[in-house]
Amino acid sequence: MFRRIFSIAANTFRETIRNKILYAILAFALFVIGMTFFLADLSVGDFARIIADVGLASIHIFGVIMAVFLGINLVSNEVDRKTIYILLSKPVRRFEFIFGKTFGLSVTLLLTTLAMATVLFLVHFSYRYGGRAEVGIFIASAGIYMELVLLTCLASLFSTFTTPVLSAIFTLSLFFVGHLTNYLYVLGEQSKGTAVRWGSRFLFYLLPNLENFNWKNEVAYGGLKSFSILGWAAGYLVAYAACVLCLSCLLFARKDFK
Protein backbone atom coordinates (compact mmCIF):
# COMPACT_ATOMS: atom_id res chain seq x y z
CA MET A 1 0.00 0.00 0.00
CA PHE A 2 2.71 2.49 1.02
CA ARG A 3 4.70 1.66 -2.10
CA ARG A 4 1.73 2.46 -4.31
CA ILE A 5 1.02 5.72 -2.43
CA PHE A 6 4.67 6.63 -2.75
CA SER A 7 4.64 5.88 -6.51
CA ILE A 8 1.60 8.10 -7.06
CA ALA A 9 3.15 10.80 -4.86
CA ALA A 10 6.42 10.63 -6.81
CA ASN A 11 4.55 10.95 -10.10
CA THR A 12 2.48 13.85 -8.79
CA PHE A 13 5.63 15.56 -7.56
CA ARG A 14 7.30 15.15 -10.96
CA GLU A 15 4.18 16.40 -12.71
CA THR A 16 3.78 19.50 -10.54
CA ILE A 17 7.46 20.34 -10.45
CA ARG A 18 7.46 20.46 -14.25
CA ASN A 19 4.54 22.86 -14.27
CA LYS A 20 5.68 26.14 -15.82
CA ILE A 21 3.05 28.14 -13.94
CA LEU A 22 4.61 26.98 -10.69
CA TYR A 23 7.96 28.40 -11.78
CA ALA A 24 6.38 31.67 -12.85
CA ILE A 25 4.69 32.10 -9.46
CA LEU A 26 7.88 31.07 -7.64
CA ALA A 27 10.02 33.46 -9.67
CA PHE A 28 7.65 36.34 -8.96
CA ALA A 29 7.58 35.45 -5.26
CA LEU A 30 11.38 35.41 -5.09
CA PHE A 31 11.50 38.75 -6.90
CA VAL A 32 9.10 40.32 -4.40
CA ILE A 33 11.05 38.88 -1.46
CA GLY A 34 14.27 40.24 -2.95
CA MET A 35 12.67 43.68 -3.37
CA THR A 36 12.01 43.90 0.37
CA PHE A 37 15.73 44.62 0.71
CA PHE A 38 15.10 48.03 -0.88
CA LEU A 39 11.59 48.53 0.49
CA ALA A 40 12.89 48.43 4.08
CA ASP A 41 14.96 51.56 3.40
CA LEU A 42 11.72 53.56 3.27
CA SER A 43 11.02 52.90 6.94
CA VAL A 44 12.36 54.66 10.02
CA GLY A 45 13.75 52.31 12.65
CA ASP A 46 12.98 48.57 12.76
CA PHE A 47 14.03 48.27 9.13
CA ALA A 48 14.48 44.50 9.20
CA ARG A 49 10.92 44.14 10.43
CA ILE A 50 9.65 45.34 7.03
CA ILE A 51 11.71 42.63 5.32
CA ALA A 52 10.35 39.90 7.61
CA ASP A 53 6.72 41.09 7.38
CA VAL A 54 6.57 41.66 3.63
CA GLY A 55 8.67 38.56 2.90
CA LEU A 56 6.52 36.25 5.00
CA ALA A 57 3.35 37.78 3.56
CA SER A 58 4.75 37.03 0.08
CA ILE A 59 5.50 33.43 1.01
CA HIS A 60 1.97 33.15 2.37
CA ILE A 61 0.18 34.72 -0.61
CA PHE A 62 2.17 32.95 -3.31
CA GLY A 63 2.05 29.69 -1.38
CA VAL A 64 -1.74 29.88 -1.21
CA ILE A 65 -1.91 30.59 -4.95
CA MET A 66 0.28 27.56 -5.64
CA ALA A 67 -1.62 25.28 -3.24
CA VAL A 68 -5.04 26.24 -4.55
CA PHE A 69 -4.30 26.26 -8.26
CA LEU A 70 -2.29 23.07 -8.20
CA GLY A 71 -4.60 21.38 -5.68
CA ILE A 72 -7.82 21.92 -7.61
CA ASN A 73 -6.39 20.08 -10.60
CA LEU A 74 -5.15 17.11 -8.60
CA VAL A 75 -8.08 14.84 -9.47
CA SER A 76 -9.81 16.72 -12.26
CA ASN A 77 -6.73 16.59 -14.52
CA GLU A 78 -6.63 12.81 -14.28
CA VAL A 79 -10.35 12.64 -15.08
CA ASP A 80 -10.07 15.07 -18.02
CA ARG A 81 -7.11 13.21 -19.49
CA LYS A 82 -8.85 9.86 -18.86
CA THR A 83 -5.71 8.59 -17.13
CA ILE A 84 -7.84 7.86 -14.06
CA TYR A 85 -9.30 4.85 -15.90
CA ILE A 86 -5.86 3.38 -16.50
CA LEU A 87 -4.82 4.06 -12.92
CA LEU A 88 -7.87 2.59 -11.29
CA SER A 89 -7.86 -0.45 -13.55
CA LYS A 90 -4.54 -1.34 -11.90
CA PRO A 91 -4.35 -2.68 -8.35
CA VAL A 92 -4.55 0.84 -6.92
CA ARG A 93 -7.23 1.60 -4.40
CA ARG A 94 -9.00 4.93 -4.60
CA PHE A 95 -7.84 6.16 -1.20
CA GLU A 96 -4.24 5.38 -2.22
CA PHE A 97 -4.74 7.61 -5.23
CA ILE A 98 -6.05 10.50 -3.10
CA PHE A 99 -3.36 10.10 -0.45
CA GLY A 100 -0.59 9.81 -3.04
CA LYS A 101 -1.78 12.85 -4.98
CA THR A 102 -2.02 15.03 -1.86
CA PHE A 103 1.30 13.83 -0.51
CA GLY A 104 3.04 14.50 -3.85
CA LEU A 105 1.75 18.06 -4.03
CA SER A 106 2.70 18.59 -0.38
CA VAL A 107 6.31 17.71 -1.21
CA THR A 108 6.29 20.23 -4.08
CA LEU A 109 4.93 22.89 -1.76
CA LEU A 110 7.54 21.98 0.84
CA LEU A 111 10.34 22.62 -1.65
CA THR A 112 8.90 25.90 -2.91
CA THR A 113 8.22 27.16 0.63
CA LEU A 114 11.71 26.18 1.68
CA ALA A 115 13.20 28.00 -1.33
CA MET A 116 11.24 31.19 -0.55
CA ALA A 117 12.05 31.00 3.17
CA THR A 118 15.75 30.52 2.46
CA VAL A 119 15.86 33.54 0.15
CA LEU A 120 14.01 35.63 2.75
CA PHE A 121 16.39 34.44 5.47
CA LEU A 122 19.38 35.47 3.36
CA VAL A 123 17.87 38.87 2.50
CA HIS A 124 17.09 39.46 6.18
CA PHE A 125 20.55 38.32 7.23
CA SER A 126 22.38 40.48 4.70
CA TYR A 127 20.40 43.66 5.40
CA ARG A 128 22.78 46.38 6.53
CA TYR A 129 20.59 48.01 9.19
CA GLY A 130 19.74 45.49 11.86
CA GLY A 131 19.77 42.38 9.68
CA ARG A 132 20.32 39.15 11.58
CA ALA A 133 20.09 35.38 11.23
CA GLU A 134 16.40 35.15 12.14
CA VAL A 135 15.44 31.51 12.67
CA GLY A 136 11.85 32.67 13.24
CA ILE A 137 11.53 33.07 9.46
CA PHE A 138 11.82 29.30 9.06
CA ILE A 139 9.45 28.64 11.97
CA ALA A 140 6.79 31.03 10.59
CA SER A 141 7.34 29.53 7.12
CA ALA A 142 6.77 26.06 8.59
CA GLY A 143 3.45 27.39 9.91
CA ILE A 144 2.61 28.75 6.46
CA TYR A 145 3.54 25.38 4.94
CA MET A 146 1.15 23.61 7.33
CA GLU A 147 -1.61 25.94 6.20
CA LEU A 148 -0.77 25.18 2.57
CA VAL A 149 -0.95 21.43 3.22
CA LEU A 150 -4.39 21.85 4.77
CA LEU A 151 -5.52 23.98 1.82
CA THR A 152 -4.19 21.28 -0.54
CA CYS A 153 -6.27 18.68 1.29
CA LEU A 154 -9.34 20.92 1.03
CA ALA A 155 -8.68 21.58 -2.65
CA SER A 156 -8.33 17.87 -3.32
CA LEU A 157 -11.58 17.27 -1.43
CA PHE A 158 -13.45 19.73 -3.62
CA SER A 159 -11.78 18.48 -6.77
CA THR A 160 -13.26 15.00 -6.15
CA PHE A 161 -16.82 16.18 -6.73
CA THR A 162 -16.83 19.50 -8.58
CA THR A 163 -15.19 21.48 -11.36
CA PRO A 164 -11.78 23.19 -10.93
CA VAL A 165 -13.33 26.68 -10.95
CA LEU A 166 -15.78 25.82 -8.19
CA SER A 167 -13.04 24.00 -6.29
CA ALA A 168 -10.91 27.15 -6.41
CA ILE A 169 -13.82 29.29 -5.19
CA PHE A 170 -14.62 26.88 -2.34
CA THR A 171 -11.00 26.53 -1.27
CA LEU A 172 -10.32 30.26 -1.35
CA SER A 173 -13.55 30.85 0.59
CA LEU A 174 -12.37 28.43 3.25
CA PHE A 175 -9.01 30.21 3.27
CA PHE A 176 -10.73 33.48 4.15
CA VAL A 177 -13.16 31.83 6.57
CA GLY A 178 -10.29 29.90 8.14
CA HIS A 179 -8.67 33.17 9.18
CA LEU A 180 -11.93 34.45 10.69
CA THR A 181 -12.94 31.52 12.88
CA ASN A 182 -11.43 33.06 16.04
CA TYR A 183 -13.52 36.16 15.38
CA LEU A 184 -16.58 33.95 14.90
CA TYR A 185 -15.93 32.37 18.29
CA VAL A 186 -15.49 35.73 20.01
CA LEU A 187 -18.67 37.11 18.43
CA GLY A 188 -20.59 34.02 19.51
CA GLU A 189 -19.35 34.30 23.08
CA GLN A 190 -20.54 37.91 23.20
CA SER A 191 -24.07 36.86 22.23
CA LYS A 192 -26.71 36.45 24.92
CA GLY A 193 -28.51 33.68 23.02
CA THR A 194 -27.45 30.17 24.01
CA ALA A 195 -28.22 28.81 20.55
CA VAL A 196 -26.01 31.44 18.90
CA ARG A 197 -23.19 30.74 21.35
CA TRP A 198 -23.29 27.01 20.79
CA GLY A 199 -23.77 27.48 17.05
CA SER A 200 -20.67 29.68 16.82
CA ARG A 201 -18.69 27.20 18.95
CA PHE A 202 -19.79 24.38 16.65
CA LEU A 203 -18.70 26.31 13.56
CA PHE A 204 -15.46 27.30 15.28
CA TYR A 205 -14.49 23.67 15.74
CA LEU A 206 -15.94 22.48 12.44
CA LEU A 207 -14.29 25.04 10.15
CA PRO A 208 -10.53 25.00 9.63
CA ASN A 209 -8.75 27.44 11.95
CA LEU A 210 -5.89 28.69 9.83
CA GLU A 211 -4.83 31.24 12.46
CA ASN A 212 -3.41 28.23 14.33
CA PHE A 213 -0.59 28.27 11.79
CA ASN A 214 0.00 32.03 11.77
CA TRP A 215 3.22 33.07 13.53
CA LYS A 216 4.21 35.87 11.21
CA ASN A 217 3.54 38.49 13.87
CA GLU A 218 5.93 36.88 16.36
CA VAL A 219 8.83 36.99 13.89
CA ALA A 220 8.70 40.79 13.76
CA TYR A 221 9.32 40.91 17.51
CA GLY A 222 11.92 38.15 17.65
CA GLY A 223 9.58 35.99 19.70
CA LEU A 224 10.02 32.82 17.65
CA LYS A 225 13.08 30.91 18.78
CA SER A 226 12.14 27.24 18.85
CA PHE A 227 10.41 24.86 16.47
CA SER A 228 8.77 23.20 19.48
CA ILE A 229 5.84 25.63 19.33
CA LEU A 230 4.81 23.95 16.07
CA GLY A 231 3.88 20.78 17.98
CA TRP A 232 0.24 21.56 18.72
CA ALA A 233 -0.29 23.08 15.30
CA ALA A 234 1.22 19.97 13.68
CA GLY A 235 -1.14 17.83 15.73
CA TYR A 236 -4.09 19.95 14.61
CA LEU A 237 -2.95 19.71 11.00
CA VAL A 238 -2.60 15.92 11.11
CA ALA A 239 -6.04 15.47 12.69
CA TYR A 240 -7.88 17.95 10.46
CA ALA A 241 -6.09 16.87 7.27
CA ALA A 242 -6.83 13.21 8.06
CA CYS A 243 -10.49 14.11 8.48
CA VAL A 244 -10.58 16.01 5.16
CA LEU A 245 -8.69 13.25 3.32
CA CYS A 246 -11.02 10.57 4.70
CA LEU A 247 -13.97 12.61 3.46
CA SER A 248 -12.25 12.96 0.08
CA CYS A 249 -11.71 9.18 -0.06
CA LEU A 250 -15.34 8.61 0.84
CA LEU A 251 -16.60 10.92 -1.89
CA PHE A 252 -14.08 9.62 -4.40
CA ALA A 253 -15.02 6.01 -3.61
CA ARG A 254 -18.63 6.79 -4.46
CA LYS A 255 -17.73 8.55 -7.70
CA ASP A 256 -18.88 6.71 -10.78
CA PHE A 257 -16.34 6.81 -13.63
CA LYS A 258 -18.42 4.88 -16.18
Binding site: L39, I50, A57, K216
Partner: peptide, 18 residues
Protein backbone atom coordinates in the same frame (compact mmCIF):
# COMPACT_ATOMS: atom_id res chain seq x y z
CA UNK B 1 -11.90 44.82 12.52
CA UNK B 2 -8.33 43.52 12.21
CA UNK B 3 -9.57 39.93 11.96
CA UNK B 4 -10.46 40.77 8.38
CA UNK B 5 -6.77 41.15 7.59
CA UNK B 6 -6.84 37.36 7.00
CA UNK B 7 -3.48 36.79 8.61
CA UNK B 8 -1.80 39.79 6.97
CA UNK B 9 -2.11 42.32 9.78
CA UNK B 10 1.59 42.95 10.06
CA UNK B 11 2.18 43.70 6.43
CA UNK B 12 -0.88 45.98 6.34
CA UNK B 13 0.48 47.76 9.41
CA UNK B 14 3.81 48.15 7.61
CA UNK B 15 2.12 49.69 4.57
CA UNK B 16 0.36 52.26 6.79
CA UNK B 17 3.58 52.91 8.71
CA UNK B 18 5.49 53.57 5.47
Amino acid sequence: SPEFAFGFRNVMADVVWL
